[in-house]
């Protein structure tokens, strides 16, 4: 029977990629908002998005700290 375990590397990888994803989404949002104010906000809750982005940033920073 296989044994499953959570790899620290996998956590780091996920944290990093999730942060990249939310950063990219925020960049897309900024691009649309500068083009047409209010448009991106119709489909995305900006405060929730900002919260997720901040959370992913904190987690990825913690992971970097762990690397030391």
């Amino acid at each position: 029977m296989k044994k499953y375990f959570i790899s620290h590397d996998l956590c780091k990888l996920l944290a990093k990629e999730i942060f990249y994803f939310f950063s990219a989404l925020v960049a897309v949002g900024l691009a649309f908002e500068s083009l047409l104010p209010g448009f991106f906000c119709l489909y995305f809750n900006v405060s929730v998005l900002a919260g997720f982005w901040l959370l992913s940033l904190i987690i990825s920073l913690l992971c970097i700290k762990e690397k030391k």
């Binding site: 990629e17 990249y20 994803f21 989404l25 897309v28 649309f32 083009l35 448009f39 489909y43």
Partner: peptide, 24 residues
Amino acid sequence: LNKKIRFFWLILLFFIIIFLAYQF
């Protein structure tokens, strides 16, 4: 694995952009 994850979210982002562009 790292490329798989990146591929996945890039595809997701691509569909979000396509959706927004369609609505726009």
